[in-house]
Amino acid sequence: MHLFKLPAIPVSPALHAEIEALLGPRESLSGFVQSAIEESLARRRQQQVIDHAQAALAVAALPLSVLVVDDDEFSHTLLREVLASLGVHAVHSAMDGRSGAQVLDQMQRAPDFVICDMLMPETDGIDFLGQLAKRQYQGGVILLSGEDSLMLSIAAEVAVSDGLKVLGSFSKPLRRQDLADLMGLAHEA
């Protein structure tokens, strides 16, 4: 809305008399209106700050969620157990990159972390990372491979250049302490 397009506000004789009674001898109606507008805007700005802070607290209070994309059932089981021992119980699973993208699309909110194997049939980790980049995924990405450390390095470089936040790349199995450190979780030996 442009201020020059504001409509005139009709003032009835009764309202005019009430305003004059409230205004001091040196106070003008325009000064009174300007002061009321400034106070209203200040209250709205303050409410926006409160609303943003409450939204941030609500998100921070949500339990951590993780999407594990790996074609190895044993890796899923192991990661689920390690994550549970760290207090993470919202673990979603996919057996390849294509189903990982489908799971991601079905989630109400993006997971905080994605743990992704690089070598999978159908749609591999590199393709899935491309899907994450297209979706402008903002969470942490942890890369795994059971075989090829060179592929891990290349995948990490590509993912970072695509705007993903790669927290680390590891050979399987991922150690509990490494996972806790990457996710910023406390861990006891």
Rank of each mutant, 00 (worst) to 15 (best):
105 D>C: 05
92 H>S: 12
41 L>N: 04
126 I>D: 11
80 R>N: 13
112 D>Q: 05
131 Q>N: 13
133 A>V: 06
99 S>L: 05
61 A>W: 01
51 D>V: 00
156 A>I: 03
2 H>A: 08
26 R>W: 04
153 S>Y: 05
73 E>C: 01
34 Q>V: 04
1 M>V: 08
57 L>N: 05
17 A>Q: 11
86 L>W: 08
127 D>H: 10
116 C>K: 00
57 L>A: 10
176 R>T: 15
100 G>W: 03
26 R>E: 12
21 A>T: 14
132 L>M: 05
137 Y>V: 13
96 D>A: 09
160 V>H: 04
13 P>C: 01
34 Q>H: 08
183 M>E: 02
143 L>C: 03
86 L>V: 03
65 S>M: 06
62 L>S: 12
116 C>Y: 06
2 H>P: 01
131 Q>A: 14
42 A>R: 15
152 L>E: 12
18 E>D: 15
11 V>Q: 03
87 G>D: 12
51 D>F: 00
66 V>G: 11
188 E>T: 15
108 Q>W: 03
186 A>Y: 11
66 V>Q: 08
169 S>M: 05
184 G>W: 02
151 M>F: 05
143 L>W: 03
110 A>F: 06
158 V>H: 10
24 G>Q: 10
139 G>T: 08
63 P>W: 05
44 R>C: 01
176 R>A: 15
176 R>L: 15
22 L>H: 11
161 S>K: 15
167 L>A: 13
187 H>P: 01
82 V>N: 08
86 L>T: 03
98 R>D: 09
33 V>I: 12
145 S>C: 06
64 L>M: 14
55 A>F: 00
185 L>A: 13
128 F>D: 12
147 E>V: 11
